[in-house]
Amino acid sequence: MKRWLLVAMAALLPFTAFALTGEEVMKKSQAAFLYPGKDFKARVVMKLIARDGQERVREMTMLRKNMGEAGGEQKYFMYFFQPADVKDMTFMTYKYPAKDDDRWLFIPAINMVKRIAAQDKRSSFVGSDFTYEDVSGRDIEDDGHAIEREEKLAGTDCFVVKSTPRAADADFGHKLTWVGKESFLPLKEEQYDRKGVPYKLFTAEETRQVKGFPTVVRRVMKNLQTGHRTEVSYLRADYDLGIEDSLFSERFLRQAPRKWVD
């Protein structure tokens, strides 16, 4: 009877009683957002939409493989379908914690694989409103994180975490992230520039369970200063497909295997 009462009391305790720190929330969020499964594949459609409504499309297959724990090394392989004149172009990234990424690009028109320096993480990903960091994440240690408040976002309980870069090399001055308490996915992110003016707004538009992993399958990044926005849809998202390590090589950059890229 006494034990039963204890269990009941424990169940009634609010979640926050476990008192996560801002950093812990962001770590869990990183794991849930960028590291689920052993590997991942999706057909990604990006719409780059100008203020006047003019649209450009980027379409690619994105493959990801985790080389270790969440927060550790990852490899990315991208094969472009659109725009039409870049079909067969491939792009590969080895992502390391606390170190610059290695990037390679295959340029089919001149049949050349070129390593690309990744000196600026702020630069835009294929001309979209996402930076490379927005796509593959920032090192948790690069920012200070603090839980500002907890609130509901469209009916979902969230932590609101304020992240402030420790160095001046980030694209933003600070950002606020709404992290779902249950899924730990970032549902909304407000980036402010270094003058404190709202800069970019990220919203997770649709989340779906894929093989048990909650996955953001539609997201939007809007540049509030230019009015330009990028809408991203993940089609046929899937996890744990057994992607071989050998895929992430110069050989397959030149000749992307059908099996993985269609």
């Binding site: 004149d85 001149i110 690309i116």
Partner: peptide, 14 residues
């Protein structure tokens, strides 16, 4: 195509 790919490459980093 070469020009298109160069410009795409440029847009990936600039």
């Amino acid at each position: 195509d070469t020009i298109g790919q160069y410009l795409f490459l440029f847009s990936m980093s600039a």
